[in-house]
Design a protein around this nucleic acid. Sequence first.
RNA 1: GGAGUUGUAGCUCAAUUGGUUAGAGUGCCACCCUGUCACGGUGGAUGUUGCGGGUUCGAGUCCCGUCAAUUCCGCCA
Length: 623
Amino acid sequence: MHQFRTHTCGELTKADAGKTVRISGWIHSVRDHGGVIFIDLRDHYGKTQVVIDPNKSFYQELDKWRVETVVCFTGTVVTRAAETVNPKLATGEIELVAEDMVILGECDVIPFQIAKEEQAPEATRLAYRFLDLRKEKLHSNIMLRSKLIAEIRRFMTGLGFNEIQTPILTSSSPEGARDYLVPSRVHPGQFYALPQAPQQFKQLLMIAGFDKYFQIAPCFRDEDARADRSPGEFYQLDMEMSFATQDDIFAVIESLFMEIFPKFSSKKLTPAPFPRIPYRESMQKYGSDKPDLRNPLFIQDVSDIFAKSGFKAFASVVENGGKVKAIKVPGIAGQPRSFYDSMIDFAKECGAKGMAYIIWTGNEEKSPIVKFMAREELDALKAAGNIQDGDVMFFLADKESLALEVGGQVRTELGKRLNLISDDEFKMCWIVDFPMFELDEETGKPMFSHNPFSMPQGGMEALETMDPLSINAYQYDIVCNGIELSSGAIRNHRPEIMYKAFEIAGYDKSVVDEKFGGMIKAFKLGAPPHGGIAPGVDRMAMLLCDEPNIREVIAFPFNQQAQDLMMNAPATVDMKQLRELRIIPLPQELKFEETFKKLYAEAARIREIEAAANNTTAGDAAK
RNA sequence: GGAGUUGUAGCUCAAUUGGUUAGAGUGCCACCCUGUCACGGUGGAUGUUGCGGGUUCGAGUCCCGUCAAUUCCGCCA
């Protein structure tokens, strides 16, 4: 019986000198000096230098050696001479003098290099994901993720949270995204849905009295990808607490983040309590509900100053109900003209009609619009922006929502181009007080603005007495460096408040009963007040690994088209499976002829196979 | 579904205003080398310039179409 190893490639030290040991791993690199050969042998734990004398008999097998071959070396641990120590290697003070060698797994020429910093095309990387995962950075990303999840479990369990699995095969839920559907064999024509989130289950767990629940929960959404959004599936730290206020939820997440972020990254973390920013303030100040607070720039409203201005373009916008928004950028008066031009182009690409700017330099204002403006207006701007010499202000005038939206993008772009965003900190904030309702621009009536199941602030009284558009929900987001880590809410657990909220949004009681009857029934049978949140595990890992793309923290990610290029998913399936599931193509959705040609061809093929099977003497297949 | 960027050797990239045989590094193959650790040296093989069409005496380069990758918008708590 051949023992594969006595040690890993990462653990031998000077203390082991003189021992005969055995290590196994991948040939990371070969340095053949003719009279002596060095091999770096790599495994999950590290690398060890193996020294080979070409006179050894096993050297003859060198022909088969190639980088990434899996081999087992037996040899003696030797302390390296001082001048040959490799300080870059944890095992760099020793080396293994090989006495015997066995090849455990041969390796063809690899499609991209693993030992060298060489970036292969995404499609190749994904098709050979198991090779890509051998690379140091990706390997360590996946390990960080693994440890992150272990730490989350440890911490949450320590706080008294219970991890409980919820169904993967469930029913289509009222979340906003498209579902992944799974056909039912037992009930032809009916479908399971994969959960977009275990939302209803975790609420039911609260109603069932489990008090504190969490789960590293897989979630499935059939939506298109982004750099920070993997298509198809992702993981959340899903959690829910009974008898909890919004501040209770915040305290748990803050303590978790304070515990975890410093463990996995040396970047500076916002100390708890994280700033709470009301949704409306965030929109006004940052033009976004997920502001990157590392960026010091902010938007301010200067509509009043331009209301009666001689600069008619802006004055008329204000007169027609629009707004003028300004972003001050300190000390950039020295930027060339081309900088301003390209920023204006950028604003236009974002949907602005244009963008104006004023440069304060040497006690005077420089700008194409200054000549239209009165002295008092310029002074008022200077005061409003607390302008110092060398500062620049950019202006966007439009319908308020558009001016803010573009302003938000301009703010981010300025931050990037001017290098205002520090790379060594995590700036956290809570966005709170999301409006419960917003105006449906088509119907002019209130509709739910985010989650219909959040508790309105002020409860029933607010719904009955206040203007719906001014009611806030106990609904919140947590944002880190401009990335939304999660939404959460204190849930609406009172049926009568639920009916009332839906009534305001234009839904009859019967509709609520029909669509959400299960939940309503549960709420009627003793539901505790409860709330929760579900930070994205992938996004947390992405931030902690300092990766710009979420694929870099997922072991086997989809590509942007939601395909797994290694497993070849999705794929066509056998007609037999489709028949069994009663999946019948709808002729009106397909070209008739083509469809039926294919069907007939497939049917003929299956008849052949079945006929062949029937003709052969029965083998393993029991009848 | 829409927009931007990119597409040249296995990989990273070069190739002047359109100009003659498309180059370099790395990898691959062969040989040399006893202290390297991204070892070094010599030599060699490797290209449908994504694909299809067009303009031109001549296209990697210009035009049109198409495909693919990626980023963004739509969508998505």
